[in-house]
Write a protein that binds this DNA or RNA. Structure first.
Lengths: 145, 145
DNA sequence: TCGCAACTATTAACATGTTAAGGATGCACA
DNA sequence: TGTGCATCCTTAACATGTTAATAGTTGCGA
């Protein structure tokens, strides 16, 4: 009578988790030597790419929830990887910026990180890789069509 | 000189996170009324589908890390959603099984859950939906080819 | 049968995910 | 001008992710 649930082996959420695990495993292995986490790496990546950002924009671009970013940025300040300054115009807003020490982590790992991405692209092939990114984007509620 | 990192806006890990967010949002909304989490829902789904399982197999099928499963199963035992029994033959092994109360949560939400899946399938179209699952599976290290 | 390696599960410690509540600042409008 | 509301961020509380260490069992070979 009731609609049957799809088999868990064909479950999209679980497939997304496992794919993410597969993609992130080599990246986590790389980062374990640097002492930073995957999320901290994302923060550094975004700040290195865009320069100083307010916390809201940073959280959005790094796909982090705001409370997580609050904790992560506190940790990263203590480690000297980023700085945080209050906006004088709008004193609610805080700007985060990468430090030279933080940038060094990016520089030291950019090559290996690029290789990991290239590996995945090679496994799927250029066409399927782009197709995958396209499909994933269509599931992202943030990307209004 | 150094290989450039791909733009974070085309980052596969971030795309996977966001897609997962898009897929899970309606499921979490559904589950919030039942008082269980997304991971507890996965455990119930797998146990309902396969019957009693040892913890290792369950963790694998539900894509949970073992320490997470230990905590989750403790919570679910307290809620009366599952039972845990020690294997008499190999006393290292524990078997987990869904209770009628747990099965009721599955039954009560199967319809709505199936509709959510159908919605996603409709958004992507049958062909692209299957293509996406195929591509994700190829990124899963657990699925040996 | 003794001892040791492998296996199964738990515990610990720290970081993040998730939701809700709280605190500070800015802004519009009566 | 001052009050109500929106905005930006933090804090709190609980659950999970992640890695490493630990405890109880089993099985096997010296």
């Amino acid at each position: 009578m009731s609609k049957n649930l799809p088999s868990t082996s064909r479950s999209l959420p679980i497939a997304l988790i496992r794919a993410r695990e597969g993609v992130m495993a080599p990246i986590r292995a790389m980062l374990s030597k640097t002492g930073i986490t995957e999320q901290q790496w994302r923060v550094l990546r975004v700040l290195s790419e865009h320069g100083a950002l307010d916390a809201t924009t940073l959280a959005d671009r790094a796909s982090l929830l705001f409370p997580s970013l609050t904790r992560i940025s506190a940790t990263m300040r203590e480690k000297g990887l980023i700085t945080q300054t209050r906006d004088d115009v709008d004193r609610r807003r805080h700007f985060l910026e990468i430090t030279p020490k933080g940038q060094k982590i990016i520089d030291d790992n950019a090559g290996q990180s690029a290789e990991i991405v290239a590996d995945i692209r090679r496994v799927l092939g250029d066409e399927d890789y782009d197709k995958l990114l396209d499909l994933l984007l269509r599931l992202d509620p943030g990307s209004k069509d």
